[in-house]
Design a protein around this nucleic acid. Structure first.
Lengths: 166, 166
DNA sequence: TATTGTTATACTCTATAACTATA
DNA sequence: TATAGTTATAGAGTATAACAATA
């Protein structure tokens, strides 16, 4: 039965976003949540004037020094061409160095990337804020849910890297 | 103890991406997974020539006809100014219509957005592919993990909307 | 006059192709 | 000559401010 107010040009009542059909779309949720999480990251690390992608570079090079650019680009999910610009900026700030390999494995024009001492100290200071950011997410979700979220995202990412997705 | 091969200019061995410190960064995982999931969505719906954001608009308007643009923009997480362009394109394709409210609630220049019959049929056909996309994700993760992922993302999104994040 | 929608614009991110440099 | 890196450029997505239209 229709109520008296149910007229054709009446606007839809305001509803919380969660009640919409998009609420069950993983892709939609991923996009919204990613923007929010990045925003929190950026806010907490604003004084370091660094983007999430640049942070990813420093973090990967800290764990795996003397890495090639192409391999680094693959890991952080950025095209080699775009990675160049990021690395240029970090090199100008003396946070990392490019060195030619003198021998061994790589072919062609391969360069080895490593953090400078300055870069390591920078990363150490920045990680204080990044850990606060991560702790904030854990506190919001709870330890268990945070682990589940991380594991499920990792599972999807692994399968995407194996070509089962995308 | 250091092995004989442990020289200073030797490159780091190749490792699966998952072994990197970024593997526990929710923000990093969200970005990578979102790109992969969107890519699968785009591939499966390529023939409809529609972006995820445009799909979100159609889906929301189907569930909530006569919605205002500002409210729609808020729900799909796009600035009103950018939403205009998306709506223009969908209107030119006759998938939705803009109508002025003749009376009642809204103030100012408010317009009511609704799907056309063509828009509803378009969405119905497209949803066949979108459901395949969603089923693919469920199959990859398993029903239980998919639900957990959705719930955790929703939880984070709700708290972000309440200003606790970002 | 407050609210809603629109335009214009700029900035970032991402994608592609063509080009350079090195083992 | 195959591999790695670089340049240039184009296209999305996003953000902001100024402006126009309507109750």
């Amino acid at each position: 039965m229709r109520e008296k107010g149910d007229m054709d040009d009446e606007p839809t009542e305001n509803l919380p976003a969660v009640s919409h059909p998009l609420a069950s779309h993983i892709g939609f949720l991923l996009r919204r949540v990613q923007l929010a999480v990045f925003s929190d990251f950026q806010t907490r690390t604003a004084t370091f004037e660094i983007t999430p992608s640049e942070y990813a570079i420093l973090q990967v090079l800290h764990a795996s020094p003397r890495m090639q650019q192409n391999r680094l680009a693959e890991i952080i999910g950025v095209k080699p061409a775009n990675c160049v610009v990021l690395i240029n900026g970090l090199e100008k700030r003396h946070l990392l160095i490019r060195r030619a390999y003198s021998k061994k494995l790589p072919q062609g024009r391969a360069l080895a990337l490593s953090l400078t001492m300055e870069g390591k100290e920078f990363l150490k200071k920045m990680n204080v804020r990044v850990l606060e950011h991560q702790k904030f997410l854990v506190d919001l979700l709870g330890v268990r849910a945070h682990e589940e979220l991380r594991d499920h995202l990792t599972s999807l990412l692994d399968q995407a890297d194996r070509g089962l997705l995308g």
